[in-house]
């Protein structure tokens, strides 16, 4: 059955569904081509507010990843019950109660984690990336695909946070991963490095304007890389055609 369908290309009579992206693509697009931080510029408020040190950025990144994965899974499992007309209030209710339950449990059973991540967890309720993924992907795909998509976006956002946080911390205070032992235990105490004395730093980098500037530079870097790659591809094609 599959053979005949695969070999003969019969145009479908109904509306042809667009080809589903592969699992790898679903995962990878969140990392680069549809990165929530660099392309969609979603979740700017927590991104700029929290990324003045690498450790804070990592904390928010981990919290976002966990909540995003859970909410996407939940929404994709329930997506038959979530009608189009009422989807937004349902997303809001589901995400808010999920985050609240998770923060209760973390507070009760993982007190150390709660002390370092607790504030980020409640920031996440208002994070529009989670709504964005629920609307764009989780609400209309199967649980596996939704989870992969959420993982990709979560990790992509986390990496942007981490990069912004590390650059700002380095410029502003001359350290990287200072105070990481609260979040990661003794492992981070070795990662933590000091490059120069804090009073030589550019204080503006830790203040809000620094966040905008660093993020803009990162976005510019990504666009430049994309542009460079496209140019190379087009140039290669042109040279080849001239020879022929």
């Amino acid at each position: 059955m599959s053979e005949t369908e695969g070999t003969t290309e019969v145009p479908e009579m109904g509306n042809p569904a667009p080809a589903k992206p592969s699992f790898a693509h679903t995962f990878l697009r969140g990392l680069w081509s549809e990165n929530p931080g660099l392309c969609q510029l979603l979740g700017l408020c927590p991104l700029l507010a929290v990324t003045n040190s690498a450790v804070n950025a990592l904390g928010l990144g981990l919290a976002t990843l966990a909540v995003l994965t859970m909410s996407s899974l939940l929404i994709s499992v329930l997506h038959r019950l979530i009608w189009r007309e009422i989807r937004i209030p349902i997303y809001v209710a589901l995400i808010a109660s999920l985050v609240t339950c998770v923060s209760f449990m973390v507070e009760a059973y993982y007190p150390r984690l709660h002390e370092s991540l607790g504030i980020y967890l409640s920031l996440i309720v208002t994070n529009c990336i989670i709504m964005g993924r629920a609307e764009a992907c989780a609400g209309k795909s199967d649980p596996l695909r939704a989870t992969l998509d959420a993982l990709g976006c979560g990790i992509g956002f986390g990496l942007v946070l981490l990069a912004t946080g590390a650059i700002r911390e380095l410029l502003g205070t001359g350290t990287v991963f200072a105070g990481g032992e609260e979040l990661l235990g003794d492992l981070a105490a070795q990662v933590s490095t000091t490059l120069f004395a804090p009073d030589q730093g550019i204080t503006a980098a830790i203040l809000p304007p620094g966040g905008f500037i660093v993020l803009a530079l990162l976005v510019a870097l990504k666009n430049a890389l994309d542009l460079h790659r496209r140019h190379r591809r087009e140039n290669r094609l042109r040279i080849r055609s001239r020879r022929v």
Partner: peptide, 25 residues
């Protein structure tokens, strides 16, 4: 009705989680 039901479910789960974790906290 569906929205109501899901809303109630959410409220119940938050209350339950709060109740279950209150002593430990």
């Amino acid at each position: 009705i569906l929205l109501c039901a899901i809303g109630c479910l959410c409220v119940w789960s938050v209350l339950y989680a709060r109740h279950a974790t209150a002593p430990a906290i």
